[in-house]
Structures are given as structure tokens and as C-alpha cells.
């Protein structure tokens, strides 16, 4: 009989270099899945949120129901949201994406609407005076001016999505959440800590990336601040 190896895996340490090297591929796959789920959900959420926010801005009666519905959706806890979608999507990645789309949608609609509402009336009157039609006004004046608020919403939605993907572990599609879930069941400390830290790192990286994009897209906000 050989004695079990006395490395950090056998001791079940929280921090373990051996784990990182031996499970590199599993970790990489989980990170890729995590990123895919996040990016796809936020992008679909954005595609749906812009027309909804524009509609709520244009027609006053639409604002109440749109905001009410998004508040209701946002109130439903993530685990319940995924569970309610189970009969529709089954145990699939689509279920996780659908749930995350609903959350991102909520945050994005609110922020884009706030952005559209913050466009000064004088600016719109000036554009109208220069002969801008409603469509051109929307794309050339209103949407660009609502970018700061919209980008703030996009950052919040993305960071929340990164964190919520982990709950997808309940249906086996949770990216790093899967590693946390199996790590919990097998009491594997290094795996749980590594996956958790990676989640936070992804969230921070995504936030900084979007902050950079925001600065590139809205140079006028910097000029005002300085």
C-alpha cells in the first residue's frame, strides 16, 4: 500500500495550485460557458429593451404597464424564475438564458427609459426646428444622449448576469456555478473557492470593459466633468 500523496488536493486546502494546473481544462470550459451564457442573455435583453423603452417613452400609456411588468419580473427570485421556465425549456441552457434575459431586460428598460426622459426638451425642440423627423431624432439625438444612463444599466445588468449564471447550476448549465455546486456536494474547498473567485474576476473585468466602452462612446460626459 502506498501512502496517499500529501499535496494540497489531499489535504482539501482552500487555496491549491495543484488544482489549478490539474483542472485547467475543466475551469476553462466553465469560464467559456459562463461567458457565453452572460453575453448571449445580455445581448438579447438589450435587443428587446431598446424598443420597449422607446415605446414606453413615445406612448405615455405604455410606460405604466412596461415598468410595472419589469418590477414584477425583477422581484421574482432567480431560483423561482428558472423553475417557472422549466416546463417551457426543460433542463437546457435556453432556460438559463431565458431567465437571465428577463432580468437584464428589466434593468435595461428602466435605465434606457430614464436616459430618454433625461434628454432636455430644448434639445429636442432644437432638433425639431432643424427639420429632424421622429425617426432621425430618435437615432441621432435621443438615443445618443441617453447613452450614459443606458450604459450604466448595461453595466449593472452584465454584472448581475455574471453572478446569476451560477444559479443555473440547478439545471446543470451554470458555467462556474456547476463547479461550485459539485464542489459543495463533494466538499471540495479548492474548487468552490477558485470558481467563486473567477466569477468575481469575470464580473469586475466585464464592468471595467463596459466602462471603457462607455468612455469611448460618450466623450462629452468627460468634458463636462473635467
Amino acid at each position: 500500500m502506498t501512502a496517499p500523496p500529501d499535496d494540497c488536493l489531499a489535504r482539501n486546502d482552500w487555496i491549491c495550485g495543484e488544482y489549478l494546473t490539474s483542472r485547467r481544462e475543466i475551469l476553462w470550459d466553465a469560464v467559456v460557458q459562463h461567458l457565453q451564457l452572460t453575453v448571449v442573455s445580455v445581448l438579447i435583453g438589450l435587443l428587446l429593451a431598446v424598443p420597449l423603452a422607446v415605446a414606453a417613452r413615445r406612448w405615455r400609456w405604455a410606460a405604466g404597464p412596461v415598468l410595472g411588468l419589469t418590477t414584477v419580473l425583477y422581484t421574482i427570485p432567480s431560483l423561482a424564475m428558472f423553475s417557472l421556465l422549466l416546463p417551457v425549456y426543460g433542463l437546457s441552457a435556453s432556460l438559463v438564458i431565458a431567465g437571465l434575459v428577463l432580468y437584464s431586460l428589466t434593468l435595461l428598460v428602466r435605465n434606457i427609459l430614464a436616459g430618454l426622459r433625461s434628454v432636455p426638451e430644448e434639445t429636442r425642440q432644437a432638433a425639431r426646428g432643424m427639420g429632424y423627423g421622429p425617426i432621425r431624432m430618435l437615432f441621432a439625438v435621443e438615443l445618443p444622449l441617453s447613452l450614459p444612463a443606458a450604459m450604466a444599466g448595461l453595466r449593472i445588468a452584465t454584472v448581475s448576469a455574471v453572478s446569476l449564471v451560477t444559479v443555473g447550476a440547478i439545471v446543470g448549465h451554470g458555467g462556474l456555478g456547476n463547479l461550485i455546486y459539485t464542489g459543495m456536494n463533494t466538499y471540495f474547498k479548492a474548487q468552490v473557492l477558485t470558481a467563486s473567485v473567477l466569477c468575481v474576476v469575470i464580473a469586475i473585468a466585464a464592468d471595467l470593459l463596459l466602462l471603457g466602452v462607455q468612455r469611448l462612446l460618450t466623450p462629452w460626459t468627460r468634458a463636462v466633468q473635467s
Binding site: 453572478s163 446569476l164 456555478g177 455546486y181 459543495m184 467563486s196 468575481v200 464592468d207
Partner: peptide
């Protein structure tokens, strides 16, 4: 608080 996954903290 938003960046830290709730599930991860619970398991940790």
C-alpha cells in the same frame, strides 16, 4: 454586492 454571486457565498 452585485458582483459577488449569492450562491458562491452560501456554499463558501
Amino acid at each position: 454586492g452585485r458582483a459577488v454571486p449569492t450562491f458562491a457565498v452560501l456554499v463558501l
